[in-house]
Design a protein around this nucleic acid. Structure first.
Lengths: 212, 212
DNA sequence: GGAAAATAGGACCGGACGGTCCTAATGTCA
DNA sequence: TGACATTAGGACCGTCCGGTCCTATTTTCC
């Protein structure tokens, strides 16, 4: 994969997350990526749609490596991993000044009904995400109350997070996302045998670690 | 308000919820509403944007009258009202074959970042919605555990529902929405003093009513 | 009957946009 | 040196789209 190609993908990813797919023109990408013209762009990608698909795939790859990876960290306790993951998404909203939201949620909102190709890819994205969460919940199996539907809980976590990012984007208020993160942790905690155990925040986790 | 005007608004609402605002052209509306041409449309609306704003306002009006109204029903217990409201949104997804999702969430996903006018209107929509939920939670005040942040809980409920509708639209699977509705009820129940009290489903409510 | 609103129909404009085509210079590596 | 990918630059096309303008006819209501 050439450097240019990567630059185009990164530029497009940024523009799409800022303006949406429809609102991002090929000319925008060409200008922002410093290409010389249309033919330069079409030298690397057969169509705008193909670019969009690749951006989505790439974005999910990054998310898998950097975001979902937290869920698999072997050195951290499962519950703390989940807590950390939620904190990461909250922090992401803060960094972006409560703009942009979730790349997947945005594309879903924009194209799920009108573009079957994107819908299917997003379906896969959410399914993989749910699987990662489910794996973590399985690890917690002996700490979980009986009868917990892990698949359902995994989807609920995603829905709450995506809904939270959507509302944060509309209200432009990071506090919304913070509240939802906190509530979500408490909800997960109610599925534990020791019902009173709340998920620790990052700060508390670091404190506990430095104490040992 | 003339009949034509209303017909245009209804047609536009349908098209926008199916294809999104950007993807719905004025010519689409003209064709589907049976207008004679551009001038006929622009006789009633100054611009496509104005049409969009009015569609949104109207849709929220309907939602307030038919959806949020459940939250205010004086003859039903507050908890049952909330349960009914959640069931209503789940049923709506079922009716629509897990398509379309929430009109507000869709517009938010499509335009929150790129169109300030829509963003502000959607902000108001979510705020009013949250206020209605909060009023209901206040009614429940003496059944609630101490320290429950009603504003935060109200926003969480909306986020979970909107996220659920988004995921349902992507997966095309109503079961997703059903699971989220059920989990959401259980989450609300954990805020009650009697922690074991689960929110009743519509069926259970009717059973209980017919028994009295 | 007359004014005003509603309906009808169509030509047209300017801009955006996805995409094609063509030519030519420059770099890269065997 | 020759083959090939990359970079460069621009002309062009067809389509869609929001919006304007103009001219009539029909309906509604005072």
């Amino acid at each position: 994969m050439s450097k240019r190609r990567l630059a185009i993908l990164d530029t497009a990813a940024r523009l799409i997350s800022q303006q949406g797919f429809t609102h991002t023109s090929v000319d925008d990408v060409i200008r922002e990526a410093g290409l010389s013209g249309k033919s330069h762009f079409y030298h690397y990608f057969p169509s705008k749609e193909a670019l969009g698909f690749e951006v989505l795939d790439r974005q999910f790859g990054r998310f898998t490596d950097r975001g979902l990876a937290i869920l698999r960290e072997p050195m951290i306790e499962p519950l703390d991993r989940l807590s950390l993951f939620i904190d990461t998404l909250v922090a992401l909203q803060r960094e972006r000044d409560a703009r942009n939201g979730s790349p997947f949620g945005n594309l879903a909102g924009e194209l799920a009904d009108s573009h079957e190709g994107f819908r299917q890819r997003l379906d896969v994205v959410f399914e993989r995400w749910a699987q990662q969460l489910q794996s973590l919940l399985w690890e917690l199996h002996d700490q979980l109350r009986e009868g917990v539907d892990t698949a359902r809980l995994a989807r609920f976590i995603i829905a709450a997070l995506e809904g939270g990012m959507l509302m944060t984007r509309v209200t432009r208020d990071v506090a919304v996302m913070e509240g939802i993160g906190a509530d979500l942790k408490r909800f997960v905690a109610t599925h534990l045998r020791d019902g009173k155990l709340l998920l620790r925040t990052v700060a508390e986790r670091e404190l506990a670690q430095s104490a040992t």
